[in-house]
């Protein structure tokens, strides 16, 4: 019991004294996962909308693949990104393995199918004739797609939450492609794993609490927007 209590007390001490190492790790986590989420939103919303609005042979298969991708195990993503970035791998010339950039890449790969899948579902959920109605209002194709995405903005917020929530708490890929290098590529999850294995429970608990708070904060903000946007 003492172990836990002591750990929690130490954790709050570290948080409230703005411990440099803990702060650095937290900021890097936010930066990496935020960037990865932005990239996945850009690709995922485009791809999801494109698949939702088009009819082509093999579309059913593509939709199945996207849905499977929504549950992609981070460790598998880590493995493949590592292989690609390995010195003599296809993207080895980039020399970004064991850098924060590599983590961003891996996390974007994890989040993109999630965002794509939710976008696909929310665009398809709009009334079938809405597309025709928008065109009948004189819209160009680009205007039509934009208005549809705008119309699906509430469910799309869920995509942002799910994408960010998925990558900020992911550990497998980050540790494999980032290497958990102190002060450079160490993020909240990888640090928690390491400190726990070393028996430094106080720091591990501090990192865990920060992770929980971050996840809560981001979701609270997005929920706030979603509730305010809800028509009265």
């Amino acid at each position: 019991m003492d172990l836990i209590l002591e750990g929690i007390l130490k954790a709050f001490y570290l948080i409230f004294t703005l411990d440099a190492e803990v702060l650095g790790i937290t900021l890097l986590s936010l930066k990496v996962s935020g960037t990865a989420t932005l990239i996945s939103l850009f690709i995922g919303i485009s791809a999801g909308t494109a698949v939702a609005l088009s009819r082509f042979p093999g579309r059913q298969l593509v939709v199945s693949l996207i849905n499977t991708g929504m549950g992609l195990p981070p460790v598998v993503v880590g493995l493949f990104v590592t292989i690609f970035l390995w010195r003599n791998g296809p993207l080895g010339f980039l020399e970004i393995l064991y850098t924060p950039t590599a983590i961003i890449l891996a996390q974007a790969v994890i989040a993109t199918p999630i965002v794509t899948g939710i976008t696909l579902a929310s665009i398809q959920h709009l009334p079938a004739n809405l597309r025709l109605q928008i065109l009948a209002l004189g819209a160009t194709r680009v205007q039509m797609v934009w208005l549809l995405v705008k119309e699906a903005r509430l469910p799309l917020l869920a995509a942002v939450m799910a994408g960010f929530g998925g990558v900020i708490s992911e550990v497998g890929a980050s540790i494999m492609v980032g290497g958990n290098i102190k002060g450079y590529s160490r993020v909240l999850t990888t640090a928690t794993v390491m400190e726990t294995s070393r028996g430094n429970f106080d720091i591990a608990i501090a990192l865990g609490i920060i992770l929980l708070l971050l996840a809560f904060l981001v979701n609270a903000i997005l929920t706030q927007i979603q509730q305010r946007e809800r028509p009265r």
Partner: peptide, 26 residues
């Protein structure tokens, strides 16, 4: 030209913004 469907197919916005939609598109 313009077309009105069996379902109203309104946007998730105010009545004013819905009526203005065709003009904004133009």
């Amino acid at each position: 030209v313009a077309m009105v469907f069996q379902e109203p197919l309104l946007f998730d916005a105010t009545v004013f913004d819905n009526v203005a939609a065709g003009l904004r598109i133009r």
